[in-house]
Design a protein around this nucleic acid. Structure first.
Length: 577
RNA sequence: GACUCCGUAGCUCAGCUGGAUAGAGCAACUGCCUUCUAAGCAGUAGGUCGCAGGUUCGAAUCCUGCCGGGGUCGCCA
């Protein structure tokens, strides 16, 4: 039950009876909570939107529509304000019905069929298989996974996908790095790594596993003869490592797509053929890059995609000088493949450093789909890691970068996931390894979790009074909840479904975090009133009906906390640690 | 130089895809512990929404141009 949607339907009916049938206007009619409480529970812009079409003064029209709306049982009072807003003051009964609805639906309250089972593909993480995940990867991973949860919760059919960059130079470098470790072990030789290689010790076990299987047969062979074996073993080992890291924060992709497989199964040829048919590629010569000296720039005709048609500053090459495909060509094939798999929406979660890459891929998606599918790229900004206020410096060259696993070992998976969603994706995020573990109201994780812990303690207290909140209670009289703090809490509860929908529409899971913070705040607020005024405590020995109503309210909060946290991928804390 | 994100209270940030007198939390100040856990709550104060135009009934939000900050800009992946 979404009371805002219910009231909106009533308003639309009213609009129709005033002769407003233009779908464009009807679709724009809002029923939303006003910023200020004194303006009522729901505000609608219907009069402002339709005054022109009806050729009437908006305030006068608002008066007339308002009189009609007032006849509805759920609407106690109607006030016209400003240029022609209609403010509705709802009868409390609708909010009490909403409470009952939550208890009936339990963790289904807030779920919707908003997405109408549309197929959505979310590609996230896609870390290069050259080493363990570091803390920067974690943000995109958590964001993407929570977005997937959010969209599933909102009725979409979601595929969680990982694109494995298992081709190209970096994989050769990876294989060479493992070979150096191989030689190190077999010949007891000090390893020397070039600039592009990977000196991390995590490659030693990979070399060992190759020795276990093949012995020392590669020592005397030329690179050409060992490189493929080393590539395969290294990629498999690194993907195993990454999947293991991901499972620590409960991330499991449905589908892994290999860049190499796109190259070998001819999909690139297919997409190039299609782009050619659509007249989107040509043989051309790019200008030398501006603003930087041309060290080895060579002007030559090459196969280009017309990405400038989509706002890119250059048309982008599909083939390198050695006649092999570029990374972009493979990625074009990858997105063509997604299109062919019938997704209606494609969402990519990338690091902010890939911002310049959006337009060319958007161009590909638009071209191959004739602009028929939704395409959205969510960029995640940097994570500034610190420890007790001191920045943690990371340098890959020195090899002292902080891995995601390090952080999980320090703060736990739930804290990591929660904190990663305390900022919107395009804002930088501060992550302090000490602060996130503080048990104080400054720490949003504990603020929210503590609400759940308090409710758990209520469950225990209730048992002593012979009430088992795990059961479905009958005859709950929500009307007894009349205190302003209770009403505020109930009103916030009634907003949950529309918050979920707004978050899903914007692809912004952080809104769930902010809502939960607000919900926890409203709960703490009421709880504390019990300190000042014993008659406002949840458990009231002299009034069992009131006690049951209040405990049910607590149960409702627990249900929503649990739903919200499950979208974030965080387990509710059951007690203080 | 181009592209992109950001600029909102002293600090950290929200702001429901255009709504009303712009909101939280820190920090500051004032109260609240014989308690269902004070790991919390109530209250006070704090603003030219970077600047200037434009679009309309109405702009923090959309458009244009500046100013300031971050990021990106390979035949790398």
């Amino acid at each position: 039950m979404n009371i805002f949607e219910n009231i909106r339907i009533i308003i639309i009916e009213a609009a129709k009876s005033f002769g407003i049938n233009d779908k464009k206007i009807l679709d724009k009619i809002t029923a939303e909570p006003p910023k200020e409480e004194i303006h009522g529970d729901i505000s609608t812009n219907i009069a402002l939107l339709s005054s022109k079409a009806l050729n009437k003064n908006p305030r006068e029209l608002a008066e007339n529509i308002g009189m009609l709306l007032k006849k509805n049982n759920y609407i106690d009072e109607v006030k016209i304000a400003g240029p022609g807003f209609i403010n509705l003051f709802l009868n409390k009964s609708i909010f009490y019905e909403c409470c009952k609805n939550v208890l009936d639906l339990k963790n289904h309250y807030g779920k919707s069929d908003y997405g109408k089972s549309a197929l959505v593909n979310i590609e996230y993480v896609s870390a290069n298989p050259t080493g363990p995940m570091h803390i920067g990867h974690a943000r995109g991973a958590v964001f993407g996974d929570s977005l997937a949860n959010l969209l599933e919760y909102s009725g979409y059919n979601v595929t969680r996908e990982y694109y494995i960059n298992d081709a190209g130079q970096q994989i050769i470098n990876l294989a060479r790095s493992v070979y150096i470790r191989y030689i190190e072990i077999l010949k007891d030789k000090e390893p020397i790594f070039g600039d592009d290689l990977y000196p991390g010790e995590y490659l030693i076990p990979v070399a060992k596993s190759i020795i276990d299987k093949f012995g020392d047969k590669f020592i005397s062979l030329k690179e050409l003869d060992w490189i493929e074996v080393f590539k395969e073993y290294s990629i498999n080992a690194m993907m195993h490592l990454i999947r293991n890291d991901l499972s620590l924060i409960n991330i499991h992709h449905d589908n892994f797509v290999s860049e190499q497989s796109l190259k070998s199964n001819g999909l690139i040829d297919n997409v190039v053929e299609l782009l050619s048919k659509k007249n989107s590629i040509y043989e051309g010569v790019l200008e030398a890059p501006k603003g930087q000296k041309n060290d080895d720039w060579e002007s030559r005709p090459q196969l280009l995609f017309k990405s400038t048609l989509f706002g890119d500053d250059l048309d982008r090459p599909l083939k390198k000088a050695d006649n092999t495909w570029t990374y972009f060509a493979a990625d074009a094939a990858y997105h063509y493949d997604k299109y062919k798999r019938n997704y209606t929406s494609i969402i990519n979660v990338w690091g902010a450093d890939h911002g310049g890459y959006i337009k060319r891929i958007e161009g590909i998606v638009k071209t191959v789909s004739d602009s028929k599918i939704n395409f959205d790229v969510k960029l995640c900004q940097l994570v500034n890691l610190s420890k007790g206020g001191k920045p943690v410096k990371m340098s890959k060259r020195a090899g002292n970068f902080v891995t995601m696993k390090n952080v999980i070992d320090t703060v736990g998976p739930d804290v990591l996931r929660f904190i990663m969603l305390t900022r919107k994706n395009d804002a930088p995020l501060d992550f302090d390894l000490v602060k996130v573990k503080e048990q104080s109201k400054d720490n949003p994780v504990y603020y929210v979790q503590y609400a759940n812990i308090r409710i758990n303690s209520l469950y225990e207290k209730a048992k002593i009074h012979g009430i088992d909140l795990r059961d479905d209670l009958n005859n709950i009289n929500f009307k007894l909840l009349e205190n302003i703090s209770e009403i505020n809490l109930i009103k916030l509860i009634s907003k949950w479904p529309r918050q979920v929908e707004a978050a899903a529409r914007a692809n912004e899971p952080h809104r769930i975090t902010f809502y939960l913070n607000e919900l926890a705040g409203a709960f703490h607020s009421f709880w504390s009133h019990g300190n000042d005024n014993p008659s406002l405590r949840f458990i009231n020995d002299s009034n069992k009906d009131l006690t049951i109503a209040r405990l049910s309210l607590a149960k409702i909060v627990k249900i929503i906390l649990s739903s919200g946290l499950s979208i974030l991928g965080v387990k509710p804390a059951e007690k203080l640690s």
